[in-house]
Amino acid sequence: TYTWNTKEEAKQAFKELLKEKRVPSNASWEQAMKMIINDPRYSALAKLSEKKQAFNAYKVQTE
């Protein structure tokens, strides 16, 4: 089980997950979700809006 003390740690864990699963920077949210949804870190960020925000930040960083 994973635990995160801060929102920032949770966001980092979520981005690490995207990186580890090699989600391409041109992937849509739907494509990315299919690649990461079974990992416990997918739940790091509770709100869908937070997940999408972190995903978009990840995409910008990896382009």
Rank of each mutant, 00 (worst) to 15 (best):
Y2R: 14
T3E: 15
W4G: 12
N5L: 14
T6M: 05
T6C: 08
T6S: 06
K7W: 06
K7T: 07
E9I: 02
A10M: 06
A10H: 03
A10N: 04
K11Q: 15
K11G: 11
K11R: 13
K11H: 15
Q12R: 07
A13E: 04
A13I: 06
A13G: 03
A13Y: 05
A13H: 07
F14H: 00
F14K: 00
K15T: 15
L17H: 00
L17R: 00
L18D: 00
K19G: 11
K19I: 15
K21W: 05
K21M: 11
K21I: 05
V23D: 01
V23C: 04
P24N: 04
P24D: 05
S25Y: 11
S25V: 08
N26W: 13
N26A: 07
S28K: 08
S28N: 12
W29S: 00
W29E: 00
W29R: 00
W29Q: 00
E30C: 11
E30F: 10
E30T: 09
E30S: 11
Q31P: 02
Q31F: 10
Q31W: 06
K34I: 11
K34P: 12
M35L: 12
I36F: 02
I37R: 10
I37W: 11
I37F: 14
I37S: 08
I37H: 12
I37A: 11
N38Y: 11
N38T: 10
D39Y: 01
D39G: 00
D39Q: 00
P40G: 06
P40K: 05
Y42Q: 01
Y42K: 01
L45D: 01
L45S: 01
L45G: 00
L45P: 02
L45N: 01
A46R: 10
A46Y: 09
A46C: 10
K47N: 11
L48V: 13
S49G: 07
S49D: 14
S49Y: 06
E50C: 06
E50V: 03
K51D: 02
K52C: 09
K52I: 15
K52W: 06
Q53C: 13
Q53P: 02
A54K: 01
A54C: 12
F55N: 02
N56S: 08
A57N: 11
A57K: 13
Y58L: 04
Y58G: 02
K59R: 09
K59Y: 05
V60A: 12
Q61A: 12
Q61E: 13
